[in-house]
């Protein structure tokens, strides 16, 4: 996969739109899923994912090899976090009600199934833990690649995943 990504990026340096299409097709779902986990909002997730592809197109030299998926996730996540920061500043007074879904762990969701509860608990986790667990469990990324994407160490990723799992389990215990 990496080899073909490298080749596609090389073609992109020659302004080959077909290469961009191929890269988008390969990574768009993962990018949108992960930015949705970061932002909790569809429109922002789409914007951030799109921005990552456009930045790669604008400056393919910025990708110097390695995992393209990790590179794209890094860019999209940074864009999403910046957007959240800007919005939070703009709507500081209304931040909590607007930006975060209901997150009271003691809140029992009547009729909600287990998967909806998982999503809700996931939303209450710190962003890094939430993203690390999603990349690991959903995207099947290796610890080293996640570390690359999040700009942190493998040890920190491992810790984040374990902590996220434990918190979700605890929330289930509390709510049951």
């Amino acid at each position: 996969m990496d080899d073909s990504d490298d080749m596609l990026v090389a073609r992109m340096r020659r302004s080959d739109l077909g290469a961009l299409d191929a890269i988008v097709a390969a990574h768009q779902d993962a990018l949108v899923r992960i930015t949705r986990v970061v932002t909790g909002d569809d429109a922002r997730a789409h914007d951030a994912a799109q921005e990552a592809f456009v930045r790669l197109w604008r400056n393919p030299e910025a990708f110097v090899g390695g995992s393209l998926r990790a590179w794209l996730i890094t860019v999209a996540r940074n864009v999403a976090l910046n957007e959240i920061r800007a919005t939070r500043r703009r709507t500081a007074r209304h931040d909590k009600s607007e930006m975060r879904p209901p997150s009271d762990p003691a809140l029992k969701v009547a009729g909600a199934d287990r998967l909806a509860q998982v999503r809700m608990f996931l939303d209450t986790l710190p962003e890094q833990e939430r993203t690390a667990l999603t990349l690991f469990a959903v995207e099947g990324m290796a610890q080293a690649e996640i570390a690359l994407a999040l700009g942190t160490s493998e040890g920190a990723v491992k810790q984040a995943i374990l902590s996220a799992r434990k918190k979700i389990r605890d929330r289930f215990d509390e709510s049951s």
Binding site: L17, L20, V24, V32, R33, V37, H46, Q50, V118, L122
Partner: peptide
Amino acid sequence: VDDLVRRSIGQAPGAPAGFGARVR
């Protein structure tokens, strides 16, 4: 927990139709 997360997040759609066209 990983299975639950996978199924939970996996339920949500990926990129919407026309996403690639917009990037292009």
